[in-house]
Design a protein around this nucleic acid. Sequence first.
RNA 1: UGGGGAUUAGUGUAACGGUAGCACAACUGACUCUGGAUCAGUUAGUCUAGGUUCAAAUCCUAGAUCCCCAGCCA
Length: 583
Amino acid sequence: MAKDEKRTGDPAEAGESQAGAAGDHRGDFIRDIVEQDNSTGKWGGRVNTRFPPEPNGYLHIGHAKSICLNFGIAKQYAGKCNLRFDDTNPAKEEQEYVDSIIEDVRWLGWDWEDRLYYGSDYFEQMYLWAEELVKKGKAYVCDLSADEVSRTRGSLTSPGKESPHRNRSPEENLDLFRRMRAGEFPDGSRTLRAKIDMASPNLNMRDPVMYRILHQEHHRQGDKWCVYPMYDWAHGLEDSIERITHSICTLEFENHRPLYDWFIDQLGIYHPQQIEFARLNLTYTVMSKRRLLELVQGRHVQGWDDPRMPTISGMRRRGFPPEAIRNFCERIGVNKFNSTVDYALLEFCVRERLNRVAPRAMAVLRPLKVVIENYPSGQIEQLDAVNNPEDPSAGTRKVPFTRELYIERDDFMEDPPKQFFRLAPGREVRLRYAYFVKCVNVVKDAGGQVVELRCTYDPATRGGDAPDGRKVKATLHWVSAAESLPVQVRLYDHLFTKTDPDDVPEGGNYLANLNLNSLEIVSQARTEPSIASAAAGSLFQFERLGYFCLDRDSKPGKPVFNRTVTLKDAWAKVQKKAGTSGA
RNA sequence: UGGGGAUUAGUGUAACGGUAGCACAACUGACUCUGGAUCAGUUAGUCUAGGUUCAAAUCCUAGAUCCCCAGCCA
């Protein structure tokens, strides 16, 4: 088995990386509806969902839930899922976001084939339909200001007041609406409103605005339009145009469904079924685009793809494989009540995937020098190391062993407590894939700090087994002092200190719960040389430490690793229980 | 206060009138050349009160609690 000098660490090479691979879905109330519709032939057996993001920010793990739901259902029932940009507000939307969304959905493993759509491409059809409602007397041009509209809307318990322009004739409305489109009126001076019911207990039905005047360039339509449709008017029409069968959205749009139904029924056009589900919340993080933008702009993180961000791009950079994110989205299920998923479940999914596919390597984060006194200086042995014990086909590699080594500082204690199995004065441990070594002396500096360990090795234990059958209680990772590579390692922790960042004193702000230690940069780390040619994005398990992803900030000869997630750490638990520092 | 949703172990979910199950977390133990992985096990639940029924998480009634809605945002 060839130990390839090149170690890509690319989990995709381990196969099974396609989305929707065998049986990774389960029932939920939405799939129940789809199955029932299929059995009654409601849509002629057709299933067509869609993922309709607004390109005004980066996608996050909450979107991943929606993406996996929509694309997953389409895949499961041999249907289609469209990717559609809901770009009806020129003020907020940018091409940068379009590009990132396309990249993220594709990276997650989904394929929309030729069905990449933009709501703005339907503007003409929407406009024609709006004229139709005007002609039918179902919509009118209103001259009230935004402020006046707001004031006349009424309250939760009291009805609104009808606009003085509500009973203009269809002819006058049509003329006015056409002149709105023609650009005759300034921003905010007029709107087109649906004529429904100002006394409706559902505020969305109190003559909602359909079009507003916005002399603003659109990221795709340029200056073609100066009237832009409101989401409530546009969204149902977009679904209708694309002949969506199941229009899956989040809970807050439940109150809007009667309005979409009203528009579609007035027009008499194709009528998709809307189904609402609860959005995802995760412990220790925030999930709204507004807040993520605030974290970026306030420099609390280094960008949308900061590895601490719950964005898809952040998770990708952190090293979370798409398979793990998809699996997570399957496991959390879908429901109609607000819930907060434990971040530990996400980490579990990441470990589960990475354990199977990530090549192992040895790295020392906080080096402590070890000199093997009875090992010849100048000698280098290339020892065999297993690349992945979970995957024999991953083969083996060579790791250089020399007289001077580094081990982890945490792996030595001069005066160890009872449960500490690792190296201590007079104690023998195994160096992984190498030899048994025994600590014979401890060298300290003037301040009493341990700076070096003098050890002896047993040549008979080469490879790590003792012919006499004697046992050691610990196996340590290590690197050769001379043959290892200096690397920078970035250790991440939760972005917030509390499971619920909103858990603040009266009048407080969630930013007060920011974890100021969420990033720790370790600059003195060293790794075995085999990772030298890995590409950015490559994933490794550094044995006994965790999973690490080669960051794009790496320069030739200066690798930078992000810690994706730690390994489960039984010793850390012991320490925590004992309340000792252990270091 | 009007309207719309919802409520099952610590967390997330299943059970569709018939033994409340699964996963994560937590805790035990076994095994181990990663204190990793793996395996075995333990703890722990139907919002409340009535009712219907041989039988209720499930059906009925009343209540409690939580979420959403008063953008020319989506």
